[in-house]
Design a binder for these strands. Structure first.
Lengths: 208, 208
DNA sequence: CCGCAACTGGACTATTTCGTCCAGTCTATT
DNA sequence: AATAGACTGGACGAAATAGTCCAGTTGCGG
């Protein structure tokens, strides 16, 4: 999944890998809060406690760093979602998943939005390879949701007629739209409402 | 709705107003395509054919210009939606509304996303008064959707039990999420799917 | 028709920010 | 433990960009 993002060929020592990781996590944190455009490389240098020459040693430039941040954030989100959704096979489980996301977003009153969604809005029209990475990440995330929906079908809680892929897309749309509205309003209520509507629809498609 | 955005007190002549409007539309077009951060004031000056001193004559700075762009774009979107939704009172009418938005977005293969949504993602965490304007615009837009849903209730096409406000929020969430996914994938399919799910849910709530 | 205020235009400055360079330090291997 | 090569640090340069200033023009009220 993760594309080769360090200068090709050269192998990293353990120390180098650690430094590189420190740069990425610092950049990811800053970018999540301030956005790509408002995050300067000097900010990243200061936050990571790494010299600028190292930043350019590990990354070809700001674009490459941003792409690495996308990969990193993507892995984090996918990993979190994989853990959260792995065992879910009921509507109630999906509701608990929703609750966790809403509560987590509540902590910052909806600010900053979805880690992946904000990145997408930020770079999609500016960096095509970054956009494609994000596209694949969204697809993977939707795949996890589709897996849950298939399990609902297997247990008979969801009609076998419906397209789990389309429902997963709809659910992801509701989630991302909810994040965006919550970000604009600084209140998670619309996010909860938006996801609830998607879940209610899924529930209404139960067998019989 | 539109806040006073030109230096208070001074009255604009017709020529001044025209120049001011030209700046705003040029900036709005650039910002829609490139985003706020990637749009420079020199770009705006070049695109509008207006001198920089005039830009600063009409706007206190970049932030004020961006806020004016938000007001302008907001009015445009709300006006468009008001016209599109005014007479809608059936599910089929909502479907035609959906078709028009999807087709329009198809022209650019989903790029740039929703004029209001992109702005929100761009500035919400950086300018609180801009965020609040956007919040109000979303609320107004949702109000138009809620109006349609109330008409559905009046004609008996929608159960009088359901909350039209919540459904409108869910529909707006699906719309915005759909825009974002389409932007990431460069394909309007997920946008269509996302809205369709919301509409299917609304349709499933018909009386009886 | 005249004068004053508002509008127009573009050259200029200060600051920010991306990216480079070089000198010194650490580490793995022989 | 010596050396080669990889890693670290910060000072430096160049470009872009927000914002300022002043000289010239236009148009409206008296």
């Amino acid at each position: 999944m993760t594309t080769a993002d360090s200068p090709e060929g050269r192998r990293l020592t353990a120390r180098g890998a650690k430094t590189r990781a420190r740069i990425i996590t610092a950049a990811a944190d800053l970018i999540y809060v301030r956005g790509v455009g408002a995050t300067t490389l000097d900010d990243v240098v200061a936050a990571s406690g790494v010299s600028k020459s190292q930043l350019y040693h590990h990354f070809a430039g700001k674009g490459a760093l941003v792409r690495a941040v996308i990969d990193h954030t993507g892995e984090r989100v996918i990993e979190r979602e994989r853990a959260a959704l792995r065992q879910v096979s009921t509507i109630a489980g999906l509701r608990r998943w929703r609750d966790a996301l809403v509560e987590s977003n509540e902590l910052q009153h909806g600010a900053y939005g979805c880690a992946l969604g904000s990145l997408a809005a930020d770079v999609a029209d500016h960096d095509d390879v970054a956009r494609q990475s994000l596209s694949e990440l969204f697809t993977e995330w939707q795949g996890l949701l589709a897996g849950v929906l298939r399990r609902l079908q297997d247990t008979g809680a969801l009609s076998p007629e419906v397209s789990t892929d389309q429902l997963a897309t709809g659910l992801m749309g509701a989630l991302q739209g909810g994040y965006l509205l919550a970000q604009a309003v600084h209140d998670v209520t619309p996010m909860a409402t938006s996801i609830d509507m998607a879940l209610a629809h899924i529930e209404s498609l139960s067998t019989g």
